[in-house]
Simulated assay, not measured.
Amino acid sequence: MRDAMEQEAEDAPIRMGAITDSLGFLIRLAQIKAFDNFFENLGDHGLKPGEFTVLWVIGLNPGLRQGSIANTLRIKPAHMTKLTARLVQRGLVTRKTPKSDRRAVRLYLTEEGSGFVEAHRENFLSFNFTEKDNLSQEEADQLTSLLKKFTGLNACH
Rank of each mutant, 00 (worst) to 15 (best):
R2K: 14
R2Y: 09
R2V: 15
R2W: 06
D3I: 13
A4R: 14
Q7C: 07
A9Y: 05
A9M: 11
A12N: 08
A12F: 13
P13V: 09
P13Q: 08
R15C: 06
M16I: 12
G17T: 06
A18S: 10
I19M: 13
T20I: 14
T20N: 11
T20H: 07
T20C: 08
S22L: 07
S22D: 14
S22Y: 06
L23N: 05
G24F: 01
G24C: 01
L26I: 10
I27V: 14
L29F: 13
Q31G: 07
A34M: 12
D36P: 00
D36W: 10
N37E: 12
E40G: 07
E40V: 08
D44V: 12
H45Q: 04
H45S: 02
G46A: 06
G46T: 12
L47H: 02
L47P: 00
K48T: 04
P49R: 04
P49Q: 05
P49I: 01
E51L: 01
E51N: 01
F52V: 01
T53W: 00
V54I: 09
V54R: 03
V54C: 01
V54P: 01
L55G: 02
V57P: 00
V57T: 07
V57M: 11
G59D: 04
G59Q: 01
N61T: 03
N61R: 11
P62C: 12
P62E: 10
L64K: 10
Q66M: 13
S68F: 05
S68Q: 15
A70W: 04
L73S: 08
L73C: 08
R74L: 08
I75T: 04
K76G: 14
K76C: 04
K76R: 15
A78K: 15
M80C: 02
T81F: 05
K82L: 12
K82T: 11
A85V: 04
A85N: 05
R86F: 06
R86W: 01
L87I: 03
L87Y: 02
V88D: 05
L92D: 03
L92P: 03
V93C: 07
T94V: 11
R95H: 05
K96N: 09
K96A: 07
K96P: 00
T97M: 14
P98K: 13
P98Q: 13
K99P: 04
K99F: 13
D101K: 15
A104S: 15
A104V: 15
V105C: 05
L107R: 01
L107C: 03
T110Y: 02
T110R: 06
E111H: 09
E111F: 09
E111G: 14
E111Q: 10
S114Q: 13
G115R: 14
G115D: 12
F116L: 10
V117H: 08
A119C: 02
H120M: 09
F124H: 04
F124V: 05
L125M: 13
L125G: 01
S126Y: 10
S126E: 15
N128D: 06
F129E: 13
K132F: 06
K132V: 02
D133F: 06
S136R: 10
S136D: 05
Q137I: 09
Q137N: 07
Q137F: 13
E138L: 06
A140L: 03
D141L: 09
L147N: 08
L147S: 09
L147E: 07
K149S: 08
F150S: 06
F150N: 06
F150L: 15
T151A: 12
L153P: 00
A155Q: 11
C156H: 10
C156Q: 12
H157N: 04
